[in-house]
Nucleic acid binder design. Structure first.
Lengths: 358, 358
DNA sequence: TTGTACGCGTTATCAT
DNA sequence: ATGATAACGCGTACAA
């Protein structure tokens, strides 16, 4: 209302001090250690600050104390539903900690990852979270990450990424999810379970493969893996080819929802009924899974739990403490592409419109 | 490799200057005005910088020059496919300009909007983009925006938002899109076209309504509007109720894709065939529209074009020039929920798997 | 409880 | 073409 800005530019701490009739130090204390100041002066200072529309300068504060309150969030593809959901959780958690999120989208480009990483040190961030399913272990990326760590900026990887020197890692449970998905399909009678990953050389795929093969080994079944490039159309083509070449395949474990949709389209075009002749479980739980037809069954750790785990690891990295983590176990949601274990067939009657979770 | 960090902390411009045997000024020039320095010294300085792994401090630079190179992107719900796509475009455009994006997610909360806006001034940003379909014209929000503008921080609204004092606005074409969608439905024989918005009191809804009613007026048809709360389940319920109460409704214009999925589920549950007895057009074009069954027909301006328009307005706001805008016209993509104008029925044979655009 | 004085790393001004 | 110096706004010993 009474926005009485000084003659030029924004109000500084000195302006507030003058108007309140105190020194800069006192104003600073009011902001940072209010308990160490008299109630009377506190009011006067707050009043003056409000009247001048004073906002402390983040730059000056950072320059002085060395922290920025900003964390870089590097995502593989923010347009993918899972990444959006994760970004939402992380943004909320950051806000709760009084921090802000600098978003960097890679759009699946590795070159971009390196460029982003190299610019990060001069950008003023307290930590970096890398959330991509694409491979990040190129020599350039590795050394860029190492450089960050050397400068005291903790780097955190997730989504199955691992093996990066010096980086903290938040397990997002893909290994367990794939193992359980595979096991459930086998237990319910599937003879030949294939795995559809996004990029065979990515660490996300590594995790899925490990879980998938572990479950397979239990029954001595052969592994069949195809690549859908994290893309609807590519997945559709890959699954079409797979189902033509190996008609025996009657179950599919899929990395992401868009790829699951591609797989389902392929089955539909081939006239293969789902889930009767082909069951499918995606390792990614987002609202969309329940909104499409057929509704996609999933085995996955909750996005919220995933984000919480990430933030726990981040907090630990920032404070130096040990990560107080309990990595959360995958939860299965039975919808239409896999109706659940071979138990007597309940009709779907859960909280969600289409699907019951376990 | 030879990361010879000084005794403590990161290398500063002074360290580089010493190692290169020049003054701070020269180092600064090498970074900002390379043409004003000898090739020889330029090499020496660059060499020293590389050897010390030097990265200029953003905070110090900002403190000095007053700009941060950061733009705040405030989105209504980053988990929604459209917001994700828009964020991707804007992040890429920002990177191309050497700027970074600070992401703030509202999760549809108005209180959050105000809190975010009020913290923005002390966060060090050059401009703010507000991309939400929810209402932003509460008195608190208005005054927070006004405060930003008063401090010289341009605020840009989009997605149909308007009427905010002092804010720049990038038209995202929802009015034209809704008008064209409605017109096409009518032209192809629809008798009763209803409008499904996200929040009746939002400015997004305002724009859609305006376009919808304009097209309706041409033929003197009555307006029917319902609210789906930007949510699958709420949309499903709303459309179920609508179709029960008014069986004459044979066409739907829908604000967002998740709501369109809810509407389609309602029709399916009611046994109403799409598009024969109920045609549907969504005013939001994202890859997902082509990936679901039935594939959703859309009329919308391209997300890329939308983002480009936003960045044009932003550039203009930052430089003080006039926005060089040509707001892009909506493009229609005919898929399965609306097969197109009543012309002879082509079989779908376009670049996309399911859908042909015009 | 409050004030003084210094430095964080950078760029702009002025001189050389 | 290069260098010395001041200033950006803030936090924090230290002194009062």
């Amino acid at each position: 209302m009474t926005g009485r800005d000084a003659t030029a530019g924004a109000a500084t701490i000195l302006d507030v001090a003058r108007l309140a009739g105190v020194s800069r130090t006192t104003v600073s204390r009011v902001l940072n250690e209010p308990e160490r100041v008299t109630a009377a002066t506190l009011d006067r200072v707050n009043d003056a600050a409000a009247r001048l529309n004073y906002h402390p300068s983040a730059a000056a504060r950072t320059l002085r104390i060395g922290r920025t309150g900003t964390i870089a969030l590097i995502v593989g593809d923010i347009a993918q539903p899972f990444h959006g959901a994760l970004a939402q959780v992380i943004a909320a958690a950051a806000e709760a900690r009084g921090m802000t999120v600098a978003l960097h989208d890679l759009a699946h480009s590795q070159g971009r990852l390196v460029r982003v990483l190299e610019k990060l040190p001069s950008q003023g961030i307290d930590a970096a979270i890398i959330a991509t399913a694409d491979p990040i272990d190129s020599p350039e990326a590795q050394s860029a990450i190492a450089a960050l760590v050397r400068q005291g900026i903790p780097v955190l990887t997730t989504m199955g990424t691992s093996g990066v020197e010096g980086a903290h890692v938040a397990d997002s449970g893909h290994l367990d999810s794939a193992a359980r998905a595979t096991a459930e399909l086998i237990d319910s009678g599937a003879r030949s379970v294939a795995l559809l990953v996004g990029r065979a050389d990515g660490t996300h795929a590594d995790k899925l493969r490990l879980g998938y093969e572990r479950a397979l080994r239990r029954v001595g079944a052969p592994a069949i893996e195809i690549d859908g490039g994290y893309d609807f159309e590519l997945s559709r083509q890959a699954v079409t080819a797979l189902l033509r070449e190996r008609p025996a395949v009657d179950a599919l474990v899929v990395g992401t929802l868009p790829m699951a949709l591609g797989a389902l389209r392929a089955a539909e075009d081939l006239g293969i009924p789902v889930p009767r002749a082909l069951a499918l479980i995606a390792c990614e739980e987002v609202p969309l899974a329940a909104q499409v037809r057929p509704a996609v069954s999933t085995v996955c750790i909750d996005v919220g739990a995933n984000g919480a785990q990430i933030m726990r690891v981040l907090d630990a990295a920032l404070t130096g403490d040990a990560p107080t983590g309990d990595p959360a176990t995958p939860v299965a949601v039975y919808r239409e592409t896999f109706v659940g274990p071979a138990h007597p067939k309940h009709s779907a009657a859960a909280s969600e419109s289409t699907g019951r979770s376990v």
